[in-house]
């Protein structure tokens, strides 16, 4: 596999994510950028932290694999 292809693949997907586009690749899965609101997170120690908002990539795939196979 050519490294130029891998570099281009990363760049194209990154650009699409920045533009909030969903990328669906047959045989692999779907990448989607979701906005996560700021929220409070409570740790076991009792410490409460206000997490900042963020845009995150979510990946969903229909491909399932059984480790027993």
């Amino acid at each position: 596999m050519e490294s130029t292809f891998i570099i281009a693949f990363k760049e194209v997907l990154r650009e699409q994510f920045i533009e909030q586009n969903t990328v669906e690749i047959d045989g692999l899965g779907q990448f989607e950028v979701k906005h996560r609101e700021q929220h409070q997170k409570k740790f076991e120690s009792g410490k409460v932290v206000l997490m900042p908002p963020a845009d995150v990539v979510e990946f969903k795939s229909n491909i399932k694999y059984s480790h027993e196979d």
């Binding site: 692999l28 990448f31 990539v57 990946f59 795939s61 491909i63």
Partner: peptide
């Protein structure tokens, strides 16, 4: 047995650039 994807720190930072520094 589900296929998962964990974005790298670089990718996460670039996507969430609006909130960089928070």
């Amino acid at each position: 047995g589900e296929l998962k994807f964990d974005p790298s720190d670089e990718l996460s930072t670039e996507i969430s650039f609006k909130y960089a520094g928070m």
